[in-house]
Structures are given as C-alpha cells and as structure tokens.
Amino acid sequence: MLEFPYDEALTAEVKQLKGVRWSSSCNRWYIPESDEVIDLMLKQFKGKAWVDYSAFREKHLATRGNRTTSAQQKTIIQATLSPQLLQELHTFRQWLLHKRYSDSTVKTYLQVLEVFLRFISPKQANEITSEDMVRFVNEYILPNGLSYAYQNQVVNAAKLFFRVIHDATLWPEKLQRPRSQHKLPNVLSKEEVKEILEAPTNLKHRTMLSLIYACGLRRSELLNLRPEHVDSKRGLLIIKDAKGHKDRVAPISNKVIGMLREYYKACKPKQWLFEGQFPDTQYSARSLEQVLKHALKKASITKPVTLHWLRHSYATHLLESGTDLRYIQELLGHKSSKTTEIYTHVSKKSLQQIKSPFDDL
C-alpha cells in the first residue's frame, strides 16, 4: 500500500510502476509485494520524493513464519527533508565512512535516522529532545509492529548522530535502549542440514551452501571470499575483513576441498570465489537467499530457515561433538565468549541427560 498526500507529480510517477492499481474503496494505491517492484519504486522516486519502506524491510528480515500485520505492509511516501537536515545526514555519512563503519551499518543508520527525523518534522535536529524518541517509539515503531532490533538501531544511530554532528553529550545519554532480548539460536539437525545441502543440483549452489555450514560463515563472509582465500595445502579458509573488520581462519576438511576443486574446474572463478551472472561480478546476497529457498522447497523442509541457521547449526553441532567453547568462539569470530555461550542452551548433549520426573510417574 502506498500512502502520501495528494500530489499530481507523484501520482503520475506511481502510475508508471509495474502492477500498480488504485482502490476506490480504500482511496489508496497498491503495488505487488516483491523485491523487484520495491527496487523499481526506489529508482522511480529517486530525487523526487523520499520513500519510507522500513516496514517492508522489517517484514522480510523477520522470521518468515511470523504473522505480519497490515501495518507491516504499509509503505509511506513523504516529502524530502530540509536542506539543513540533508546536509547534516551527508556529513554524518562521511564521518561513518571515515571511521570505516561497514556499508550495511552506514546504510541502516542513515535509513532509520531519516525515518526518525521525518517523524519529528518540522523540528530541526538541534531542537529534538529525548521525549521525541519516546513518542517515536510509541506512535510509530510499536503501532507498525517494527522489531526490537529496529528500535535498537534507531537509538544507536541517533546517539551517534547527535554526538558527532551536534556535539550533544547530555541528550544521547538520556536515550535508553529497549530492554534486552534473550533469544535462542535456531538450530537444524544434522539430518536436516544434509537434506538441504544435497538438494541443489547446481554445483555452485551446492558448494556455497556447503561452505557456509562447513565453516560457520556469515552470508557476507561467503560472498566476499576470493579464490586465493582457500589454502588447500594447509586445509584452511582465510576469512578477510569480517564483522568488526577482523580476519580469521577456519579449518576445511578434505571433503570440502574436493568439492571446491570440482567447482573451481567447472566455473573457473577469477576475482571472486563465487561470481555472479557476469564475469568478475560478486554473487548477490538476494540470489544466495533464493538458492536456499529452492533447496528448502526441494528438501520438503517447511521451517522458516535462513542462511544464518546454517551457521548456528555449525556451532551447535561442534559443541555437541565435544569441541571446546573457546575454540568455537575463535572459529565464529565472536568478540565475547558470552555470545558463543548461547549455543549451550540449545545443545542436546546436556539436555538429553536430564530425566523428566514425568518418566517416574
């Protein structure tokens, strides 16, 4: 659903979108819910209007099995920010890049900041108080069903923005993050992992999914691999500039090395280990997600599995096989051991030793 104040120019642009339709009963425009249409919409309105599609993005980042509300499907088009705020956001972006924040963090911080600054409009940034953030949470985030993670991102971005751009050392300290969540990682059984990895008939697809599980990789870590990062003689995979700009190594077995050699002979990658449709282009994250989606369908697995489930499963299976938690922390690239300790809560090795009192009845 598209919602915006009446504007002839914007209406003319909307009519050009693929699959758009007008609802007389609801007095709104509707577009198909797909990544392709959203991408086209963003290009269509670039430089003409600002598109708040955070609710759509939240829905697709959430677990696919979760129920979504009508508010989560709403896309709002609003007018552009004032020149002063646009300049401040540009300055903030330059600072983030200077400090070597990751591209995804820069993109996320700028997106959530824009949503917040538009919500409190016509206030300028130097007029904002902590009460405005409370109102934003109560009147925008909660009614739209946006996640705890989204709220946390807004607070993190706002704190940094006001500290860097407005040298505000008091206001950000009053800004409180939401109460911490303690969610358990989603883990697959070894049998389910095997079914998923054996499902793709395409050699590249099978190799990509297998490497994620075999080395506990994040999606970006797999896509950023280059052929020279595979050290077959030492049996190591070199993971460069991972989360937090950290390098690490992961052991790869002879079975994985054999699969990589077969793939290399067939596809002959040059710049990237897994290249896209055209030579020397990086394989896209969206395409990789589609690979997993097709594998799940072929394996008849209905769980809302994501690529990160394979990483969680790798860590849990290592723990269940007796690998020390400290080694697992190093293999996953966790900064804190507390992050790795979450896998002790889902490992069946210890849980299965507990006898339920029900059995004694």
Score class of each variant (00 low, 15 high):
1 M>L: 07
5 P>R: 07
6 Y>K: 14
13 E>V: 09
15 K>F: 02
18 K>V: 11
25 S>R: 14
27 N>M: 03
38 I>T: 10
39 D>P: 00
48 K>L: 04
50 W>E: 10
54 S>F: 06
63 T>G: 07
70 S>T: 13
73 Q>K: 15
77 I>R: 01
78 Q>W: 02
78 Q>F: 02
89 L>V: 01
90 H>E: 13
90 H>S: 08
94 Q>N: 15
97 L>C: 09
105 T>V: 03
109 Y>N: 14
110 L>S: 05
118 R>F: 02
119 F>D: 08
119 F>E: 03
122 P>A: 02
125 A>D: 12
132 D>N: 12
132 D>P: 05
134 V>M: 14
136 F>K: 06
150 Y>A: 04
156 N>L: 05
178 P>Y: 08
181 Q>M: 03
190 K>V: 15
194 K>R: 11
199 A>S: 11
207 T>G: 01
213 Y>K: 12
230 V>C: 07
233 K>P: 00
238 I>H: 15
238 I>V: 15
239 I>S: 01
244 G>R: 01
252 I>G: 02
256 V>Q: 14
269 P>V: 15
279 P>S: 12
298 K>D: 09
325 L>P: 01
326 R>V: 09
333 G>V: 11
335 K>N: 13
338 K>M: 11
343 Y>L: 05
351 L>D: 04
358 F>W: 15
361 L>E: 08
